[in-house]
Nucleic acid binder design. Structure first.
Lengths: 337, 337
DNA sequence: ACCGCCATAGTAAACGTTTCCTGCCGCAGG
DNA sequence: CCTGCGGCAGGAAACGTTTACTATGGCGGT
């Protein structure tokens, strides 16, 4: 299993130190002759430096860990894409680990990333509203921030004392915009398809809808998927057959709701208005195209990493992203009006 | 920056060796009393083992690297999700790095993963049909396979001598199914929206369409995105105004084509049949719902990792996944017939 | 001619683990 | 009573790097 630095040094007839200095890009002066010899031998032997050994000494592995709630969920995928885009520029390695919305797994995964020498950990996970979990996470963050930086992405349940960079979207504002939009259209009986009720971003959106609408909507909690939305639509109508509008806390669920309407002869938006949240790319290509709220998820992901990298020099500690209502064809005036 | 093994050992009044044996789950016998003391101290100090140092000795970091062509592309996202699902079960860490379809970056990234001690590297990247690149990749694979396993996922341009596990889908069959389907519907003038012409999976699909159709379609190469499909549709009609059907090598492009048709008053499928490939989740929720070919991308991703893990004990070297045509509403009889 | 400094090379100590090997103790067999 | 062995603890080497420190030689300044 060839190819370590010692072999290169021996083959090139130089000391370990010299070889290291050449190949690690050190500023220490090495004569042109030796330098060239080392480079040549390294190429010939296909020397690949061992980043683990290097990190053991320098402490910095240029590695970013990202904790997400669920793989395959567009919300997290978009955030991660943003992180990766920046990571590529900075030639950082990104390790994503999914916690499947399990608090215990999230803590364990955090530990695992910490163990593997990540220098930045971005927590985009579930953001659970659970006391024990909160304490555990705070402890992990405190422990890790001695050696690296933590970014809390799209969540805010930890109090300000916790040493972390924060990147957040205006989730309440997103819900509020949708609620107000429906109110302007004359809707009073509104349903909400909500993802898990302990995830802070979801909770904020639901509250926002209520506030924007000026009254309490009917809420059901369902899996945050297309099929969850489909099933939830049926639950909502069972709870209140006179609903004229539905808001989903994520576009996938809204798409499920649209499918339900189509399958059950409900015209959208004539009989039923449907709106989503996040503005996934396909929202504009549906029929009817989906009213939703654009949330700059990719930008947020990118910002998360950038802030963490910049913070070395004491940069910005918090960034808040505004959202924007995108009105399309799936919402219209209430038939009651 | 506390929390290393030496501190735990000192605090517990035992030797480094004993502490290590307790905390690394070694089978070496340690008395119950010391064991308990070590565990207690480790918990109290919040000891987090340094995986880098450990990997330096054991050589095994339980880390999987995945090379993908482009983040945000559903094709790769689905593959990666499959990998991650299995990785979670095996508690492996997954590091994904995007090469943006740049061969040079792909090679560099491969090196970077190798350097960071990945024990398995899954190459799902571009699969370029380029000689120099092929040689470079073969060299990297050969180098890495001395210490780890390589999986080539969804590509086949490397010859059989290269020591790697292979997981492939029947890309030619996918194209063939679509071509044959359109032929049965009486279409003769067919357009193809193709992604990059040097990516093997894409090339295979295009050939498949031609073979299934029994004649050469009009092909344009466009970016493999929704907007690429939209623009490509316009190019195709400029090349042949009498087209009655279009096949896209990925669903996003087909969605763009549908949007183009809607914007330009072409009824689907009456005036124009449109079909995609991959069967992304939203395909059935479009209007009209999209005829496409289901490719088990997640299963393939999962299989890739599983085979690599199993191969330690000399497992299967190659797995081939069949595909299935899914006929929906976006294709119909040719208006010419 | 001597002192000291710069440029460059090499030696060895660290980084945090795991594990080989040696050593101690008590007990059973001769 | 001595020998051997098994259960357990610790010392120290090793993994592949980086880097602080030391060593050498040439050269300019006095």
């Amino acid at each position: 299993m060839g190819g370590n630095l010692k072999q290169v040094a021996r083959e090139a007839g130089v000391s370990l130190a010299t070889a290291s200095r050449v190949l690690s890009g050190s500023s220490y002066p090495v004569s042109a002759e030796l330098r060239e010899r080392v480079v040549e031998v390294a190429a010939r032997l296909d020397y690949v430096p061992n980043a683990q050994a290097r990190a053991l000494i320098t402490g910095n592995a240029r590695t970013v860990g990202v904790l997400v709630g669920q793989v395959g969920d567009h919300y997290f995928d978009a955030l991660v894409d943003g992180v990766r885009r920046v990571a590529a520029e900075e030639s950082c390695l990104v390790t994503v680990v999914s916690t499947d919305r399990d608090p215990e797994r999230e803590l364990a995964s955090f530990r695992q990333l910490q163990s593997h020498g990540a220098s930045i950990i971005i927590v985009a996970g579930s953001g659970l509203d659970d006391e024990e979990y909160r304490v555990g996470l705070a402890a992990r963050v405190a422990s890790f921030s001695q050696t690296g930086r933590v970014v809390l992405l799209g969540r805010h349940e930890l109090d300000a004392g916790v040493p972390a960079v924060r990147v957040e979207a205006d989730n309440h504002g997103a819900g509020h915009a949708l609620g107000a939009h429906l109110r302007r259209l004359g809707h009073t009986r509104v349903g909400v398809l909500s993802g898990s009720g302990v995830v802070t971003s979801t909770v904020d959106r639901v509250r926002g809808v209520a506030d924007g609408l000026g009254r309490a909507p009917t809420v059901v909690q369902v899996p945050q998927t297309r099929d969850g939305g489909y099933a939830g639509m049926s639950q909502l109508l069972a709870l209140d057959a006179d609903l004229t509008a539905v808001v989903a806390t994520a576009d996938q669920m809204a798409i499920g709701a649209l499918a339900y309407c189509r399958d059950h002869g409900l015209a959208v938006p004539t009989d039923m208005s449907v709106a989503g949240c996040n503005d996934i790319w396909v929202a504009r290509d549906l029929t009817p195209s989906l009213t939703t709220v654009h949330i700059p998820l990719e930008e947020m992901g990118g910002a998360a990493l950038r802030l963490a990298l910049a913070e070395e020099n004491g940069g910005l500690k918090r960034q808040f992203f505004p959202v924007q209502l995108v009105v399309r064809e799936s919402t219209g005036p209430s038939p009651d009006a």
